[in-house]
Write a protein that binds this DNA or RNA. Structure first.
Lengths: 344, 344
DNA sequence: TATTAGCACTCTGTGTTAATGAGTGCTAAC
DNA sequence: GTTAGCACTCATTAACACAGAGTGCTAATA
């Protein structure tokens, strides 16, 4: 168990290092006016904190830097919520107050504002369409052989695919197909769509219209969706301003990581709904060893729908980011839920 | 007018500098076996070439480097088409041969393959929707107050917007609206849609359905499109491997530039249809002073539809990139045109 | 017993100097 | 017109000294 003084010292080390990015020395700590001990005493305490694994030296005679364990302790025990400035509150309200219609726009703007306010990088995982339910099918013919298949979901998302029509497929066949699909599949979630299509409609379709196998295959194709939401970035280049990214190799590694969708998605921990913090190696990804990720999820209606992540250096302003994320999460949830419930 | 020997020397300087990124010295040039002169002679010629502005020294006693004027001359007079390797041809065919349905996927893949083959960055400007023509309108109600408006264009593109319905708007009103829109606006290009909507349909709508001003405003909104195609990137991080990007500030400036849509679009010169090369400061953008951009446009059907750009260091392999771009341009045009004409 | 002042020691960062090497320009010879 | 030879320039690198920041330890102090 840490003594009170040790807690104080750890807190100063983390706070100072977060703002200055420089190792913190005993003299620097002793200067804080709420710290009464002399540098020598602090050095002794620091030696103990180091032995306990909370802080590290970058070389024999340098000041101390928080270790991952140190950050973890800080985050778990020393973090205190802070309130936001008026400017910040204003910015948030500006996204949500306008009667905004396009969900995509709200999300895009949220990502930008978050990254502006934090000067870190924001990743926003959009609502996962696979939970949405089919509201309406539509097939619009483009030519003799091609058409566009459209699915509108209950909260206004539109999916579309180009499909190939069987030879000699008449407009009436299209109409029949659309009717069959709408009769049987409205209300089905996109996740189940593929199997329900297979079980309930293909046979019926074969009976009523001139269906070729290629057409069935096209329809299968229509019912295939990405099983993760769309990814939005904010402030991708903010990271380059952080001193830990003076190393070009790190920059490249991170940029390449962010180009790969699957790797980006693996940064999120979607198990749970609260705010989560992963520090450095806790992310299980070499590229992220010097970075921390803070995630939160927002909901639309009752479902947990999407996630927000902020990526910054391990030396991140955890307090601030956690507070901002919390506000943003609830703001987004409220804004998007209103939009959907708007008269259901 | 340059002598034959001067041409040879300039060519070697550009070619060698392109591959090595190191200033080229007289000895190095004399080693090429098709160069017969001695280093001293070459030095004299180089002094002349420098006086003419085709090459430069980085410092008093360094080898020579092509100037912008030198590159420009090289590109205008010394460039010779090269043929592609089997591997490359194979890669190209792999995109186009599969019966691909989604235009977006073809474009995305093209961008990736181009950047893989060149190890530069590719920007692909997708087809500009504003030239497409309306094939079908559709309005799908989501709730009492909201609906999704959908426009399908003649080549299968789908645009959609969420709109707000006037109070007490009945399903039959929606049907009437859709009918009026389809009767009057099918075949109109998206570019003209806004004005035609204004002139020809709003009055009719006011007569036949319970139209609120907010509804009219929503429809106006529906008819507003981005007037440039969507932007696709390939190999955004390739640039980081170029030695000229060892400078972090340049990296940041470039990355920030690529985040801004308008700046990216200004890189294209869409006046004309051929292959265009802009070298360094010819791009009129500080960030691009050390970079060259090669652009080409592809067409779908008869219209010039989209553009491809490859961004690399000024010290770029112009021959190779021009050849690749030429193949890609015609491949893309053919693939996308087939897709559209497919039975018109 | 806990704290603190003092001091030797360690490591980083910076500025200086010297040596090396690649390349040029010029002159004189071919 | 071409080329060999030579003096000169500049960038790069290594070696070295020195200042500064910080530590750990010891001995004195409250």
């Amino acid at each position: 168990m840490l003594t009170n003084r040790q807690l104080q010292i750890l807190q100063v080390i983390v706070d100072d290092f977060v703002t200055s990015a420089q190792p913190v020395g005993s003299r620097q700590i002793s200067k804080k006016d709420w710290i009464t001990s002399s540098p020598a005493t602090i050095r002794n305490e620091m030696a103990d904190l180091e032995e306990l694994g909370f802080i590290e030296k970058t070389h024999t005679s340098s000041g101390r830097v928080p270790s991952e364990k140190g950050y973890r302790f800080y985050v778990d025990h020393l973090l205190q919520p802070i309130s936001m400035s008026n400017r910040e509150i204003g910015l948030f309200q500006s996204i949500f107050k306008n009667q905004i219609v396009e969900m995509e726009q709200v999300i895009r703007e949220s990502a930008n504002i978050l990254s502006d306010l934090t000067s870190y990088t924001t990743i926003l995982l959009g609502p996962n369409v696979s939970k949405h339910r089919v509201k309406r099918f539509q097939i619009v013919p483009l030519s003799e052989q091609t058409a566009v298949a459209i699915i509108v979901t209950d909260n206004g998302h539109v999916e579309n695919r180009t499909i190939t029509l069987p030879q000699g497929f008449a407009p009436s066949d299209i109409e029949k197909t659309v009717n069959i699909l709408n009769e049987r599949l409205v209300g089905v979630s996109l996740l189940e769509l593929q199997s329900r299509l297979e079980l309930e409609t293909f046979n019926v379709l074969r009976q009523h219209v001139n269906t070729a196998d290629s057409f069935i295959q096209s329809l299968r194709n229509v019912a295939t969706f990405q099983n993760e939401g769309k990814i939005y970035f904010g402030g991708k280049t903010n990271m380059l301003n952080q001193p830990e990214f003076h190393d070009l190799n790190k920059v490249r590694a991170l940029m390449e990581m962010m180009e790969k969708e699957s790797q980006v998605i693996s940064l999120f921990h979607r198990e749970d709904t609260g705010i989560h913090i992963r520090i450095g190696s806790e992310n299980n990804h070499i590229v992220m060893d010097d970075l921390s990720v803070i995630t939160a999820s927002y909901s639309v209606g009752n479902d947990q729908e999407g996630s927000i992540a902020i990526i910054g250096p391990k030396r991140m302003d955890y307090q601030r980011v956690v507070s901002l994320l919390d506000v943003m999460r609830s703001g987004l949830s409220r804004a998007l839920s209103n939009k959907v419930n708007d008269g259901l």
